[in-house]
């Protein structure tokens, strides 16, 4: 369960999140939509401990993550969270295998080869395992990102505009992948400005001026 209670966050005196409270419990695929600057990415970053609220509590499985130490943050990001970003954030000099394996290197997993092959198969990229990511298309790179996000078997996938740089065909593939993950028990939080993508989720939370404008179950 992800719970945000009375969250406030401001940048340079501009309040981006205003006393926001949100609980994500039953739904596995939740979309956060809103206009640019509405605070959706900030919200996602705070769930992922990339940013912290000025006030309020964020708890995941009833643990207050806002109070985490540096070591706990690292552990949380590595074990509990899978990130998927608009800009893929892959290491261009590595091949697909090593890019996907990085979280496993960090956590010190042993059977890396097997696990990487499993997730690449899941995202349909197992034929590209030895290929440099710089040689892949945008859609393929994003699928590698998703593979990397799930390779450590995290409970939560945070996807920030994952289709922002993709054409409609690739976007559909990525959203379908995220949906499959949600169906398999992962909690996927998708930040998007595309309502068509958002409608594929179970719940749409619309933000505006740092507040929840609507919260719709589909």
């Amino acid at each position: 369960m992800i719970e945000l209670k009375n969250i406030c966050k401001s940048f340079d005196d501009a309040m981006v999140i205003k006393d926001l409270s949100l609980v994500i419990e039953k739904e596995n695929f939740v979309s956060i939509v809103g206009k640019s600057g509405s605070g959706k990415t900030t919200l996602l970053n705070m769930i992922g401990t990339l940013d912290f609220p000025d006030s309020g509590i964020i708890s995941v499985d009833n643990i207050n993550i806002s109070k985490f130490s540096q070591r706990e943050i690292a552990e949380y990001r590595n074990r509990k969270i899978g990130f998927v970003f608009q800009s893929f954030f892959l290491e261009p000099s590595f091949d697909v295998f090593h890019n996907v394996a990085v979280p496993l290197y960090i956590s010190g997993e042993k059977d890396i080869q097997k696990r990487v092959e499993e997730v690449l198969k899941l995202v349909g990229m197992n034929d590209y395992i030895k290929k440099k990511v710089s040689k892949l298309s945008g859609g393929e790179q994003q699928r590698v990102c998703i593979a990397r996000a799930i390779v450590n078997n995290p409970e939560i996938i945070l996807a920030d505009e994952p289709c922002g740089n993709l054409d409609s065909t690739n976007s559909a593939i990525i959203i379908d992948l995220l949906k499959t993950l949600a169906e398999n028990g992962k909690k996927v939080v998708l930040v998007t400005h595309d309502m068509d993508d958002a409608r594929k989720s179970e719940r749409i939370v619309t933000l505006g001026d740092g507040m929840i404008m609507s919260d719709e179950l589909l």
């Binding site: 992922g48 990339l50 990001r77 590595n78 954030f89 290491e91 979280p103 960090i106 990397r148």
Partner: peptide, 16 residues
């Protein structure tokens, strides 16, 4: 820079 940031985001501590 971006690689290091990627490691941080993926849960590697600065000391490591």
């Amino acid at each position: 820079k971006y690689y290091i940031n990627m490691l941080l985001v993926l849960g590697m501590s600065r000391i490591r």
